[in-house]
């Protein structure tokens, strides 16, 4: 409670001057920052210590093992295999989800009568919990030729049970759920493209494709940056959907870095090792995001 009282007790004159000129004092953010620090930052940082121990997750038996956990990770064929799966999933999700999201956004941006309704429909899956989506899709992915997706398409695919298909089935499920999310962000970007630019381009004789390529697309760059970054982060730390749909199986075919670190901590009782994997994952996600932001920011243009 201290930060609140502190900000209220602060002499009004000094801060009001700054407030009226540019922006409010950062102190207003203090309560949120304190909660964030206590609930997110502190536990995360204090957890890092365990990556250098052999703690089992329970009890007081623990010794420091230095970098041994990280060396184990390098030689762990299951964890390494899961990195491959994670990257494949991420690339697929980033490309397909954003492509579908962009198409949907362009579609519902047009002057359709039902566009408000369609926007809601396409966005609806986003608000459903990922675990629920996975359970629903387990019915859709029923291997029985007469039910679910097989029945609809007349196929005989074992969607989640065939190791060579399962990973793609999960990607499909994720894209179905989050394409609407990308759509909304692209839509916000599309709304920001001034109609005069399109008019000018039309006068210059540009067709639909040319207007998209040379007017809309460059101005969508900020939306692309955000979408690519969010879907990359989402893909790299994908857990719920995999856990609920296949639990990493069949065999190890859909194991991601997140399911491996979950299993190490809660199924195998290797908390230290699991923290080491989590640390590597966190650093990797941070690095990829930074590189992406840097790269995409450079190609953003002002309208």
């Amino acid at each position: 409670m201290t930060p609140l009282t502190a900000s209220r007790a602060r002499p009004a004159r000094a801060s009001r001057r700054r407030f009226s000129v540019t922006s409010p004092p950062w102190l207003f953010a203090a309560p949120a920052l304190v909660v964030y620090a206590v609930v997110v930052l502190y536990p995360a940082v204090s957890g890092v210590v365990y990556a250098f121990t052999d703690w089992s997750g329970i009890g007081e038996d623990m010794s420091f093992v230095g970098l041994a956990q990280f060396r184990t990770l390098l030689g762990d064929e299951q964890a390494m295999g899961s990195i491959g799966n994670t990257l494949l999933l991420t690339v697929t999700i980033v490309v397909v989800q954003n492509a579908v999201g962009l198409l949907l956004a362009l579609g519902v941006h047009a002057r359709l009568k039902s566009r408000a309704l369609l926007r809601v429909v396409f966005f609806a899956p986003v608000v459903v919990s990922p675990v629920m989506v996975a359970f629903l899709w387990k019915y859709i992915y029923n291997p029985d030729p007469s039910s679910g997706l097989n029945g609809l398409l007349g196929l005989r695919v074992d969607w989640l049970g065939d190791p060579s298909v399962a990973l793609w089935s999960i990607a499909g499920m994720v894209v179905w759920q989050y394409a609407g999310y990308s759509m909304v962000i692209f839509l916000a970007g599309l709304e920001g493209v001034a109609p005069e630019l399109h008019e000018a381009a039309m006068i210059d004789g540009a067709g639909t494709w040319q207007r998209f390529r040379y007017v809309t697309w460059p101005l969508l760059a900020p939306a692309v940056t955000i979408n690519v970054m969010l879907s990359t982060i989402g893909g790299l730390k994908l857990f719920d959907q995999v856990f609920a749909a296949t639990n990493g199986g069949p065999g190890y075919a859909t194991e991601t870095l997140s399911t491996v670190l979950y299993k190490q901590a809660f199924v195998f009782g290797k908390y230290g090792y699991s923290t080491a994997i989590a640390l590597v994952l966190a650093l990797f996600v941070a690095a990829v995001s930074l590189v992406q932001v840097y790269y995409f920011r450079n190609r953003e243009v002002a309208a």
Partner: peptide
Amino acid sequence: GQFLRMMGGLA
């Protein structure tokens, strides 16, 4: 400013 105030209130 609005955003920060909102977050502060929420917290």
